[in-house]
C-alpha cells in the first residue's frame, strides 16, 4: 500500500482533487464500524466472534475434558463445579458445548466452501451463457430444490452411511441450488453491462469474463446469502445429529447431545436446554450477521 502519493495536478485534468487515498485497511475498519452501528448486527458479530474464540481456545475455556466420563457424578445439576451440569455419563456439558463449537464450525466451514464455488460457478455460467446451458443447469437445480432438503440429506446419509463427513456432503448437496439461482439472477443483471461489453471487445474469453468480471459483482450478495445459509446449515446438521446420522458419539455435537439427552429430559432439563440454546443462539447470530452484511454490501437496500 503506497501511502505517500503525490498527485501532480495537470491543468487539463480538471477536478483532479488531491484527496487522501483511502487505503484498503481503512475501508475494512470503516465497514466493520458501520456493521457494528446497528445493535442487532453488532450482537450477531459478537456471538459469531464468541463462537470462533470458543472453537480456537476450546482447551483453555473448557473446564473439563469433554470425553472424560465420571460415573460417580452422572446427571448432576448445574453447579460451580459443572456450570451446565453433567450428562448421563457424568461428562461436563459446558465443556462439551465449548468443544461442540468446533464441530459446528467445521461443518459450516466445509459446507460453505463446497456450496459457494459450486453455486457461483453453475449460477454464473447459466446466467452468462443462457440458451441450452441455462436450461440444463436450471432444470437440475429445480430437481434439487423440489425435494425437502432434510429428506434429501437423510437419503444421502442413508446411502453413504452415518458420519460427520457424510453429513457435510449431504448438507452441501441440498444447499447449493438457492445459491446457484441467486448467482444466476445477479449475472443476468450484469452480463450486458458496458464493462462486460468492453471486455468482450478486448477479446476476453468467456471464462475470463466470468471469473474476473461477473463473479466479483455476484460476490457481495452471495456472501450475504451464504451467511444466512449458515443458520440453516447449523439447524440441518443438528437435525441430522439428532437423528443419529451426523456426528457419531462420543463426539460432542450439539444436535446429538440433544438427542441423547432427550431420554432424561423430564428429570434433567439441562441436558437438552443448553445445547438447544447454543444452536438457537448461533443460528440467530448468523441470521443477524447476514442481515447486517446485506445492509452493508447490497447497494439496492440503500
Amino acid at each position: 500500500m503506497k501511502s505517500t502519493e503525490t498527485l501532480k495536478n495537470p491543468g487539463y485534468a480538471l477536478g483532479a482533487r488531491s484527496e487522501a487515498q483511502p487505503s484498503r485497511m481503512t475501508f475494512w475498519i470503516k465497514s466493520f464500524k458501520k456493521l457494528c452501528k446497528n445493535p442487532l448486527s453488532a450482537s450477531g458479530v459478537v456471538i459469531v466472534a464468541l463462537l470462533l474464540v470458543c472453537a480456537i481456545a476450546a482447551p483453555l475455556i473448557a473446564t473439563h475434558n469433554p470425553l472424560e466420563q465420571d460415573l460417580g457424578r452422572i446427571l448432576a445439576s448445574p453447579s460451580l463445579a459443572h456450570w451446565f451440569g453433567t450428562d448421563e455419563y457424568g461428562r461436563d456439558i459446558f465443556s462439551r458445548i465449548v468443544y461442540g463449537s468446533r464441530v459446528t464450525l467445521y461443518i459450516i466451514f466445509l459446507v460453505t466452501i463446497i456450496v459457494g464455488p459450486i453455486g457461483l460457478l453453475i449460477g454464473t455460467m447459466s446466467g452468462y451463457f443462457g440458451g441450452w446451458v441455462d436450461s440444463v443447469f436450471m432444470r437440475i437445480t429445480d430437481i434439487f430444490i423440489s425435494f425437502p432438503s432434510l429428506v434429501l440429506a437423510l437419503a444421502f446419509v442413508a446411502a453413504l452411511g452415518p458420519g460427520l463427513e457424510h453429513a457435510v456432503i449431504a448438507i452441501a448437496i441440498t444447499s447449493w441450488p438457492p445459491v446457484a439461482r441467486l448467482a444466476r439472477a445477479e449475472t443476468l443483471t450484469f452480463r450486458n453491462s458496458d464493462y462486460v461489453v468492453a471486455a468482450q471487445l478486448q477479446g476476453a474469453s468467456s471464462f475470463r469474463i466470468l471469473f474476473h468480471y461477473i463473479s466479483l459483482m455476484c460476490l457481495p450478495s452471495l456472501i450475504v446469502r451464504l451467511t444466512m445459509n449458515m443458520a440453516t446449515v447449523i439447524l440441518t446438521a443438528a437435525a441430522l445429529g439428532f437423528l443419529g446420522l451426523g456426528a457419531q458419539p462420543p463426539l460432542p455435537e450439539w444436535g446429538a447431545m440433544i438427542s441423547t439427552g432427550r431420554s432424561y429430559m423430564l428429570e434433567s432439563w439441562w441436558l437438552v436446554a443448553f445445547p438447544g440454546a447454543a444452536i438457537m443462539l448461533v443460528s440467530l447470530a448468523f441470521n443477524l450477521l447476514g442481515d447486517g452484511l446485506r445492509d452493508l454490501l447490497d447497494p439496492r437496500t440503500e
Partner: peptide
C-alpha cells in the same frame, strides 16, 4: 471473432 477485431476496434460508452 471479437477477439480478432480487438486490435482494430474499441469502444467508448
Amino acid at each position: 471473432s471479437l477477439k480478432e477485431r480487438s486490435n482494430t476496434m474499441q469502444m467508448v460508452f
